[in-house]
Design a protein around this nucleic acid. Structure first.
Lengths: 197, 197, 197, 197
DNA sequence: GTATAATCGAGACGGTACGTCAAGTCTTATG
DNA sequence: CATAAGACTTGACGTACCGTCTCGATTATAC
């Protein structure tokens, strides 16, 4: 989604070297000191790529960080497959909760925050991180649909946001701990609904 | 919640004048240009209160803005009372969704973002805005409990986060529009649960 | 000189306690951290005398520090009396040079600097420190006159400034070390004159 | 002297524009309102050079002002050349005395004061102003040596400090007026020596 | 003894400048 | 022509200290 908003950038062999160097450097910085450490100067210095070049490839610092973070997280958070839709979903909520509570979860929150006033960066974040996560859950959901565990009338966007939106809310406001029992109970409540049937 | 974390501030008549002037100025700036416009220098200039004094009363710019915003929003978003728990909750989700889509909703998002790297500010945000919102929903929920519409086994924190967390998620990532039909459908999904009974 | 420029201050027993407390505190602070440490806030806190009261007794921070310093130095730098005018003067120049090179000499320089933009403070500095020093040298000079070692045609102000002005110059600009041999040679040159007779 | 203590600054065409603009603006401000008027913000605004850039080129406000002042004074205070060593020296002392009594002499005093707590600035002041003055006098002295008017045994540093240190002392403490007759008498006293031969 | 005026402690406050930081743009020279 | 190097502008940050101010408490002295 919104891939078209992402700026075209120079192509060719040199570009690829530049891309790789910048992203690697950014990933290291994000892991070492979070988003605040990944200043454009620091990225430039560590990667050996000049600031001007960085800004030729990405529209903003946030965009660089978002892409680097997306790459960093690719492959992390694999989907559970217990055979039970209920268990799979609960397990995934717990995993994501644990992720938000981790150091990288903190970077995630910082990135989300940075995107609030940087729509270009936000597009990168969606493109290189969020979309991937949503697709993973969609896969899981389709499995559930195949089994008839869930209603085809539900919208996947609602499902995803109901399951994971609360965790993000908690991560950002800090009003509730991101512990496993809390995550589990939350998932169960989401699955069962709030109203007495 | 966390009220004790918030630093005591000087009291007395002079302090109250300072407080009022700063908060009013901040509210105006937030309404005019959002959080980015509410710089400490701008607040100082408009309120006639010196920067140093502002920093004596609040730990950070975010804290000032959080309190000003909380005051600004007090009384807004009144609770619906249709007689039906289901309708009340759906209606409230729609109202909050509309709020997030508004200019002040944007300020809310900016504030949330600013709190990510400012724990002191976050404490203010919880104290002067978030807690109030949660209490309002709690009231609504207690009414539902009285009617037997909902199970006493549910935790109010889960309820609140399930209903409103998704909206915040959508506001922050921009992956889904905050329109009334979307909000309504989301609320209904939350109320009914994700799994086929 | 210029004593008349010095502001009148409250009198009585309470005032004396205030005076003593402030000056003692200031002296301690000057000795501990030099003029920069003797901020009015620090003096107020250590002395237990409120800032407003301090400003009722002295026109400026510099004035307080100047008087405190003068008191601190009273009795220091006693006059030599070797029986030889030449030796006495040389010795005194050496002593003053050593003083300028010391920690308190540094405070002296800071005070001199502070007086540049504070005429009220400068008046105090003259009154409570400089005048005393000049009078001491004058005494020495009168002894020399009595012995016929020096010409009555010379002006004591010229004598004093010729002997000690160069040291201050060196202290302030740092272009020449304030060591004993340098001081001695300087004094000898001053005594003998620059031109071949 | 001490040139090596002064930080290297960026070079190239852009740097030179920056240097020139900053120094010119500072000179104007010094002439208009003395050292207190030459705040870094004011220099930045008038020169069109940003504060950050100024701090990349100079270690402190004092350093900027010192260099600007040195440039401002270059060429001022030309050496007298009457043919008589005695007259030349007396004349020069009178000129310097008049300078100290002037508006720019006041700036000189302020600069000297500012250097007391800013060694980096002091290095600039020596480098760009004081050294030049000393060299001028040295030239005059060498002429005198060539004529045999003065003893080769004297040290030029002593000579300079004896002649001009007293003036600075008087300028700073204000205990004696910087008038022409006073300056003349002082110079004569220095030339002839304090002791009866 | 008490009234009343001078004096004081406490510390909030406005003001001014400081020196720092990082984002993003621009220039120059190199390969 | 894409890059490296890094100078540069911009705008805000949080801090420091001055000297003034307000208020209520504490004296000292006059009655």
């Amino acid at each position: 989604m919104n891939a078209n908003r992402i700026v075209a950038h120079p192509s060719g062999a040199r570009s690829e070297r530049v891309h790789a160097a910048v992203l690697t450097a950014t990933q290291e910085l994000l892991d070492e000191g979070g988003y605040p450490a990944a200043t454009v100067d620091a990225i430039s210095q560590r990667s050996g790529v000049s600031k001007a070049t960085i800004y030729k490839h990405w529209p903003s610092r946030t965009a660089v960080a978002a892409k680097a973070f997306g790459q960093l997280m690719a492959g992390e958070l694999p989907l559970p497959d217990t055979g039970s839709t209920r268990q799979d979903l609960i397990e995934q909520v717990c995993r994501v909760s644990a992720f938000y509570a981790s150091a990288r979860g903190n970077v995630f929150a910082q990135l989300l925050a940075a995107c609030v006033d940087d729509e270009a960066g936000a597009a990168y974040f969606r493109e290189y991180f969020l979309t991937g996560r949503r697709e993973a859950i969609t896969t899981l959901w389709q499995r559930a649909l195949g089994r008839g565990d869930v209603s085809a009338a539900l919208h996947i966007d609602d499902v995803i946001d109901l399951l994971f939106g609360p965790l993000i809310f908690r991560r950002l406001t800090g009003h509730y701990d991101l512990t496993e029992p809390h995550a589990r109970r939350l998932a169960e409540t989401a699955l069962d609904g709030l109203l007495t049937q």
